[in-house]
Design a protein around this nucleic acid. Structure first.
Lengths: 232, 232
DNA sequence: ATGATTGGATAGTGTCACTCTCCAAGGAAT
DNA sequence: ATTCCTTGGAGAGTGACACTATCCAATCAT
């Protein structure tokens, strides 16, 4: 297919596809003549993955290129490729070095991963981007005066470990090879908004259960149309 | 204190503080003379919250203003204020209407919240920003060919519900009033990167447990310094 | 008195994800 | 064969965003 059809079938504007080609997020099509190129189903698939990463996952274009390069890297096994892909994901600001709060956050993160080590957490990942992400988030909480006690963090770690087992079970259902690494990246990135959205929905619901005045809640039975106002 | 001291104590440049004042993220200081203003401890605290939301939470400045306005809104109870604050959080692109995939995603989201309703999920939140965030993420997964079966989604929903209970328990430890609503916002937003970081760490660890060649793993005992390379 | 500091206003910077405009080569229709 | 349209590549331009730099007059410290 030509670029215009790729655009029609994906819903992405031709100009944007050209931009992705230029940025190396999409491999070039097969050159038919000096001025025309042919694109296949794999281009369509890749384009949809790029869109999902960039728009839904919020991955910057430059990072997405690194992630996809890792996915395509035939020189590594799936563990290595997945690791490299996750390694390239965005992870917020670098924690400020030479800051006592950062040092405390680092210590908390180390305690947490140590305590979770037995149940499958990455003690070997200290200093990878996810670890730095954890440290800078904990440092921000500490700076705001929240103690970030281990006892409060542990449930998060345990649930994350359980999610990881579940996710890899799901990934194993796809045929090994590129499809599996691609699935791993897609599920890692795209389930992040799913998880955050579900947590926010659950917060609202739990807050409503605990604090909303009873007369505001609809009586038992089908949800009333007015119930949507309760969370505002 | 003067603006310069506020800057020194928070680590935020004076120019940036002026920008936040202009944008209404920080209330103006108490005017001492025609050209000078005095700032208090509450300004410092608010400034740190703004920094955490913007830098760590990735909340755009314009959204942060809405979130903080909701936190300060004395006309509502804590449930209402928390709801309004979460309502104003960023939630990705709007799901494309008039799209069959979006329709299917909407249906899946409805099934999921219905199934979780009894255990504390927000059936009354249908059409709030978190719901839209869920729908557009599911739509992206469906477009990529991942079926998003209920069976795969349910564990996420159940864990999210458990996190919500845990989070509100933590929040209840703070004294009721502004501090509690502020804690709710801070914990909602700043635990998001914590959760994502822990999930990514757990993915890496679980992938290593399952797929890494045994000779790559350090033998039982203290973690070897080279173990940090394993995720690449 | 005088030099530094303060806070407000305005304009500028760098980044990012596109998006527009131009162009020559190629194909389709008559 | 000539005309017209489409194609894909390249470079510049756009708008949003989060600052950041420069001015300036009023005011404070010495």
């Amino acid at each position: 297919m030509r670029l215009a059809e790729l655009s029609r079938r994906s819903g992405v504007s031709a100009a944007t596809i050209k931009y992705y080609l230029r940025e190396g997020l999409l491999p070039p099509g097969e050159r038919v003549t000096a001025t025309q190129a042919e694109y296949g189903a794999e281009h369509l698939r890749r384009l949809r993955l790029v869109r999902a990463l960039v728009q839904v996952g919020g991955v910057p274009v430059a990072r997405a290129r690194e992630v996809l390069r890792a996915v395509d890297d035939a020189g590594q096994d799936r563990h290595g490729r997945l690791g490299a892909a996750v390694w390239a994901l965005p992870h917020g600001p670098e924690p400020e070095e030479d800051d006592p709060v950062t040092a405390l956050a680092r210590e908390r993160a180390a305690e947490l991963t140590a305590r979770l080590g037995g149940s499958g957490h990455g003690e070997g990942q200290a200093e990878g981007p996810p670890h730095r992400m954890l440290v800078s988030a904990l440092a921000a909480l500490l700076r705001l005066g929240y103690p970030c006690e281990l006892e409060q963090l542990l449930p998060y770690g345990e649930l994350a470990a359980r999610l990881a087992v579940h996710d890899l079970d799901v990934i194993e259902r796809y045929e090994p090879g590129n499809a599996q690494v691609e699935a791993a990246v897609a599920l890692t990135v795209l389930y992040e908004p799913v998880l955050l959205a579900l947590r926010r929905l659950a917060h609202a619901a739990e807050s409503e259960r605990r604090y909303a005045a009873p007369e505001r809640r609809p009586p038992a039975g089908p949800v009333s149309p007015a119930a949507g106002e309760a969370g505002r």
